Amino acid sequence: MMKRIFCLIAVFMIALSAVTAAAYKDQINRDGHILENAEIALGGLMVGTTRAQVEAIYGAPTERTEPRMSPALDEMMDEYTYGTSFKIIFVKDTVMYLNTNAHNGIATPAGVTVGDPADKIMQTYGKPWRDTKYEDGKENFVYRDKYDIAIVFRTEHGKITYIGIVGSE
Rank of each mutant, 00 (worst) to 15 (best):
E79G: 04
C7Y: 09
I121G: 00
Y97G: 05
L35C: 09
A102F: 01
A41P: 06
Q53W: 04
Y134S: 07
E75V: 06
T50K: 13
V142W: 01
T113I: 08
K25C: 04
I5D: 00
M1P: 02
D119Y: 07
I165F: 09
T50W: 09
A21Q: 09
A18Q: 05
D93S: 11
Q123S: 15
M96V: 01
H103N: 14
C7I: 08
D148A: 13
T155C: 15
V91A: 12
V11N: 03
G32M: 14
T108A: 02
T20C: 11
I89V: 14
K87I: 00
V166K: 05
Y147M: 11
V19I: 14
D31G: 06
I165D: 04
A72R: 15
V152W: 07
I40R: 02
A72E: 15
Y125Q: 04
S168D: 11
H157C: 14
A10N: 00
T81E: 13
I89R: 15
Y162T: 05
K138T: 15
K92F: 00
E63N: 09
I149P: 08
V19N: 07
K87N: 10
G105Q: 04
Y134E: 09
A110T: 04
T49F: 05
M122W: 00
E63M: 08
I28S: 10
T65L: 03
E75D: 04
I163A: 01
